[in-house]
Amino acid sequence: MPLSCDFTVYNWNGVPQPVLDREDRVLLVLGGFPPNATDWKEAVTDDAAREMENAATKIYTEPKWRCKAEATAAKTPCRGPHAAESVGASMGSGQPFPMMLQHSVVNTTIFAGLFGLKCFERIAGWTNTGFAPLLHEYYRQTLDDLFTWDAGQDREKHLRCNFLRRFSVFAAATFNFGPHTVTFPHIDFGNLAWGWCAITALGWFNPDLGGHLILWDLKLIIHFPPGSTILLPSAILRHLNVKIQPGESRYSFTQFTPAGLFHWVYNRFRTDRDINTAPNTSPEEHERHWADRMQRWQEGVKMYHVWDKAPNAVRA
């Protein structure tokens, strides 16, 4: 898909700032990294990239993970030809109830080790600070309700958080192991329509020459330096990132909550099929249920923070 000349290039340097829509709502946040964290590159950016590289060599068999990326490329995946693994709670694809994404015991241990590292805890904690307050509260309350419900279920395997709850309100995460994480234009249709996911760029590459984030629908090209985080509504905005230079490495760490989990909690811990097939659900209740769902988008957009006094804001 060639770019037209009406795209705007934004030379972002990682300083936190909002991106506003025409009604001054914060549509997405260029979260960057903490301005006063002088050790961020060494203790967070570089450490996280090294730990992802080390983990990939254990997860993927010899000759290491580059063969995984090449094999994936032959299948033309929707997001891009790179090795990636998602970890956390999931709901969808015919699941009768929320459950954890499945991995081998060895890989589960590796992922738990990554989540327990200080560098990833700091990324998750910093991401939390960039959330629109009402949207953050909605994510937090949904996760609280979900885990309260799960704790009351009589079964062997229960849901688990990737991070301690004080660090993150997301239910899942994806490690894009690369080693050259370059994505095709896509939307994350499994995420909440008005919700945000958090993308953190990692690795060793020149952000002036590659790795840019392209928000296709906004016609915006953003420099995306290593160690910085961007929160965006990935279910409605087509996005991709461009190639990096030969000899460079780029990874990314993405945090999100599947829309199916919100739907499950919203339905009072039932699927739509459960509601539709319940013998005691009246036609009037069915009608109210679907009418109520039609209003969810409008209610969701109200969670976007209105910020009319942001001198450094980017306009979408």
Rank of each mutant, 00 (worst) to 15 (best):
R166I: 09
C67G: 02
A201F: 00
R122Y: 11
V242P: 10
L220S: 12
L213F: 03
Q17R: 09
P207G: 04
W126K: 11
Q102A: 07
I187W: 08
T129S: 09
R25A: 08
W126G: 05
S168M: 04
E62M: 10
D6K: 11
G260A: 00
F131A: 02
A172T: 06
L261M: 04
N13P: 00
R25K: 09
T257S: 14
G210P: 06
T281P: 08
H158V: 01
V106P: 01
K64F: 15
G300V: 00
A43M: 15
V9S: 10
P207V: 07
H239K: 01
R293K: 15
G31R: 14
I236K: 11
F253T: 08
I236Q: 12
A71C: 14
K41P: 06
Y139K: 05
T45G: 06
E137Y: 04
G80R: 07
E121D: 09
A43T: 14
H212F: 04
W194V: 11
L101M: 15
M294K: 15
G14E: 07
H286L: 12
R293M: 12
A132W: 08
S228I: 05
P185C: 09
L135N: 07
I214C: 07
K219T: 03
H223C: 12
Q245D: 02
E156S: 12
H158G: 01
T174G: 01
T61W: 04
H289I: 14
N206K: 05
L135V: 07
D6G: 04
D154L: 07
G178A: 10
P311E: 01
N54F: 12
H136F: 08
P81T: 05
H263E: 07
P77S: 03
R268Y: 05
P16N: 08
A198L: 05
C78P: 00
H212D: 08
V26I: 13
E156I: 12
V105W: 14
Q255N: 11
N11K: 14
R122D: 15
F175C: 14
T277D: 03
H286P: 03
K243D: 10
P63D: 13
F163P: 06
D145C: 04
S249V: 13
K118W: 13
A259L: 09
D144A: 02
M52Y: 06
E85Y: 10
I275S: 02
K68T: 13
F131H: 04
N280M: 10
M294R: 15
F131R: 04
N267W: 02
P2R: 10
I221H: 14
W290V: 13
L20M: 04
C67V: 14
E51T: 11
N312T: 15
C67Y: 10
F163W: 11
M303S: 06
G203K: 02
L28C: 12
H223D: 08
V106L: 09
Y138W: 14
